[in-house]
Design a binder for these strands. Structure first.
Length: 778
DNA sequence: TTAGGATTTG
């Protein structure tokens, strides 16, 4: 029978397809392939009315969507059916049915350019010996002969590039932007969500509901949502989604490898293996195509003048005035800047007084305004909040002294708002564990409290003023050793022979370089050479050069790594191969995985380092995978590029890494990786020249510091704007711009003198050592 | 109905 309707039982056809038929891939529907005994399967996404051609032949056209590669740019194909077969099909076909077609004739499609579908179409007719099997999803059979059909309901999901005005659809999307639910000016809560999917089309949805719980539980950009029955409308020339009757949603964590557990308030929902597969596909697509922000900032990482999201616990709350409300929160870390305390009467502060006092040095005050007040009032003390787009406002109160204020301004621009996170949220679990581990005695003296001290919690103490005063009298640096030495004045040191060690008390009159990023160099501890940190342009050029050679397929998929390869769709048709190193024959979690990449660009490598633990750019030769030129990093981990010394390294092929992969718990430490690869690693170091004065004389001392002096790793400074800011603040504290010598703070340092001789001259130089910035300065 | 992404100016 040319057209057969098949009954579906438990998701499978009751009658199997004839065994001689084999499935044909969408991409193999090309001229030149033999399609005898092959079938193609797809879902009917469009069916046209039955028509008659000029010669009186019946004609029926449907569009089938390839479900194996649902998110390819081209994933649908025109099916043209003629004669009696057209008439039969037209009677029973419904959108969403699965069509299996065999015995078709393949031809170039004259409409491919205009309809964006497959460049071939399939022609079927009884005369040509074609067969069509239809798995119908319609509950109401279209023809009497199918009256016995029973099928599970099946949802059809529309890609975002295929949305039509006035329709109600089901869809999946990755959250690109969202406003957490807020109180609208009408009767409902409102949440605005912008989605994107692998068609690369965006859709902004405006969702209303009187019940906060009925809106999608989105916690961060990158979450994945499934919307059912969302209405599509055109607004300002673009498609827009809006809640319609029966709207429901599921939200999933967008992290690759995270459990696929839907967040929803619905008691009943469908979610099956197929849907799980879609979520996993979307996660994978997002991981390599979208830049999903990394972990949110902690209070210790707040950057002045910027906006940030904070996951925190509510410790106290208080009404301030009609348009603002105070939330006192903590996340277990200490903000490195002086922060303001909003003056509030103790009796107005809701929260556990003892807890508020104990945490007083770790809590920050966040003042929320206008539309956020109503929501803020409703939060329970102790609950976990995510506050989106807090403004870290830098306010100068006195000369050279500033503090940070945290405001959640009115309005909902940029997703500004507050959401309560459930205790089941992984970020909350992590935060709770961290808060429990915080040793309060570590950050403050945990003395017993008097009522007087309790009151002082709410006084507007300006800690930073006290800090400044301390800096005027005490030293802003401290010694880490040799406390028994007494001070020597600079004049005596200048008149002495080298080498010797001294303890000094001096002021920093000036320092070089003034542009702090210029102070970072690379140092080889073996040959003692110093070199500049290569710039990214050079990295990119070398990557481009290495991308010319195609990956060697013989080196793919070995016992210790799995490989994937693809070709870019741009004109260059660049081939990229990624080799994921396995452990115990298994792939590890992305955050534990080391991968090697061939043919990638700087941008692609950068994206991969956000997801994966280590990325090593490589190239293939006839026999081996090898490192690139040592002008580029031999390893990129987190934000840091690790370089090797060109003089002291003897690079080995990448297979040397397999010895680390085989270890019990490979930690992928850069030094260990360097060692097995024959690389002498270069270390990032700060090199600065301090001009020190003490009233008896002036001398230049070099600072050579990996981390100890500034308590900032030199390896991280170039990629971390917070650390740059912190270092600048430290230097401003050591040497405040525009101050008279009298007003400069004292530094206590150890210096050592040493001789530098060449043929022409002899010089005594000085180097600072065993000295660090005082804890309360940084 | 409400909002329709695109930082307050406290």
């Amino acid at each position: 029978m040319p057209v057969q309707l098949l009954k579906i039982v438990k998701g499978k056809p009751e009658t199997p397809l004839p065994s001689h038929l084999q499935k044909e891939d969408f991409k193999h529907l090309q001229e030149g392939f033999d399609h005898t005994n092959k079938y193609f399967e797809g879902i009917v996404v469009v069916s046209y009315p039955l028509t008659k051609l000029g010669d009186g032949t019946d004609f029926f056209k449907v569009v089938l969507q390839d479900m194996d590669d649902f998110y390819s740019r081209i994933n649908s194909i025109n099916i043209l059916i003629y004669g009696k077969m057209a008439e039969d099909c037209a009677k029973v076909t419904r959108s969403g049915d699965t069509f299996v077609v065999a015995g078709f004739k393949l031809e170039k499609s004259p409409t491919a350019r205009e309809d964006g579908r497959h460049d071939c179409h399939l022609k079927l007719s009884e005369e040509a010996g074609s067969t069509i099997f239809i798995y119908t999803t319609s509950k109401k059979p279209a023809a009497s002969k199918t009256a016995s059909l029973s099928v599970a309901p099946k949802y059809l999901y529309t890609p975002l590039n295929d949305l039509k005005d006035g329709t109600v659809v089901n869809l999946y999307g990755i959250v690109k932007f969202f406003k957490p639910p807020y109180v609208s000016k009408g009767t409902d809560y409102c949440s605005v969500v912008t989605l994107v999917d692998p068609s690369n089309v965006k859709l902004t949805c405006t969702l209303f509901n009187g019940n906060l719980d009925a809106l999608p539980k989105i916690y961060k950009v990158g979450d994945i949502v499934r919307f059912h029955r969302i209405k599509i409308r055109e607004y300002n020339g673009q498609m827009q989604g809006i809640t319609s009757g029966g709207f429901s949603s599921l939200t999933f964590d967008g992290t690759v490898g995270a459990p696929v557990v839907p967040r929803t308030s619905s008691k009943v929902y469908t979610f099956m293996d197929e849907e799980q597969k879609v979520i996993e596909e979307l996660r994978a697509w997002a991981a390599s195509n979208l830049s999903i922000p990394g972990p949110a900032a902690k209070l210790s990482g707040v950057q002045p003048m910027l906006f940030f999201d904070l996951t925190c616990q509510l410790v106290g709350k208080a009404k301030v005035d009609g348009s603002s409300f105070l939330l006192k929160v903590w996340d277990g870390t200490k903000c490195p800047y002086p922060t303001w305390k909003v003056p509030v009467e103790a009796r107005d502060m809701e929260g556990d007084k003892v807890h508020l006092y104990q945490l007083r040095k770790l809590t920050v005050d966040i003042l929320v305004y206008d539309n956020h007040v109503q929501l803020a009032k409703s939060f329970q003390i102790g609950s976990f909040l995510r506050i989106y787009s807090i403004h870290a406002k830098q306010v100068s109160a006195h000369q050279d002294v500033s503090h940070l204020e945290f405001h959640l301004h009115g309005g909902t621009c940029y997703g500004r708002g507050i959401g309560v996170l459930p205790e089941s949220n992984p970020d909350v679990k992590e935060l709770k564990a961290f808060l429990e581990s915080v040793d309060l005695a570590d950050t403050q003296n945990n003395e017993s409290m008097s009522s007087l001290e309790l009151d002082s919690t709410f006084n507007n103490l300006t800690d930073h003023e006290l800090d400044l005063e301390r800096c005027q009298q005490l030293s802003v640096t401290v010694l880490t050793d040799h406390q028994d030495l007494s001070n020597t004045d600079l004049k005596t040191i200048l008149n002495s022979t080298a080498p010797q060690q001294y303890r000094i008390r001096a002021k920093l009159r000036t320092y070089k370089p003034q542009k702090l990023y210029q102070s970072v160099k690379l140092h080889c501890s073996k040959c003692n050479s110093l070199s500049e940190v290569p710039d990214g342009d050079n990295f990119d050029l070398i990557l481009q050069g290495s991308a010319i050679t195609a990956p060697n397929l013989e080196l793919h998929n070995t016992s210790w790594y799995d490989s994937v390869m693809w070709t870019t769709q741009d004109q260059k048709q660049r081939k990229i191969a990624i080799h994921f190193v396995k452990h115990d024959e298994m792939l590890q979690q992305p955050e534990d995985t080391l991968l090697m990449i061939e043919g990638g660009t700087l941008k692609e490598i950068w994206k991969l380092t956000k997801r994966f633990k280590c990325v090593i750019p490589v190239r293939s030769t006839d026999n081996n995978l090898e490192l690139l030129d040592l002008s580029v990093p031999f390893l990129v981990q987190g934000g840091t590029k690790y370089y090797g010394c060109k003089q002291c390294s003897s690079p080995k092929p990448m297979k040397s890494l397999s010895s680390i992969a085989a270890k019990q718990e490979p930690s992928w430490e850069p030094t260990e990786i360097a060692q097995v690869l024959g690389i002498e690693p270069l270390q990032y170091v700060f090199i600065m020249k301090f001009t020190l004065v003490d009233g008896t004389g002036a001398l230049n001392a070099y600072l050579f510091d990996y981390e100890k002096f500034f308590q900032i790793p030199a390896s991280e400074i170039l990629t971390n704007s917070f650390l740059q800011e912190k270092m600048q603040m430290t230097m401003n504290m050591l040497c405040p711009p525009g101050r008279k010598l009298d007003d400069l703070p004292w530094l206590e340092c150890f210096i050592r003198s040493y001789n530098v001789r060449n043929e022409m001259k002899h010089q005594v130089c000085y180097q600072i050592f065993d000295t660090t910035i005082a804890e309360d300065v940084v």
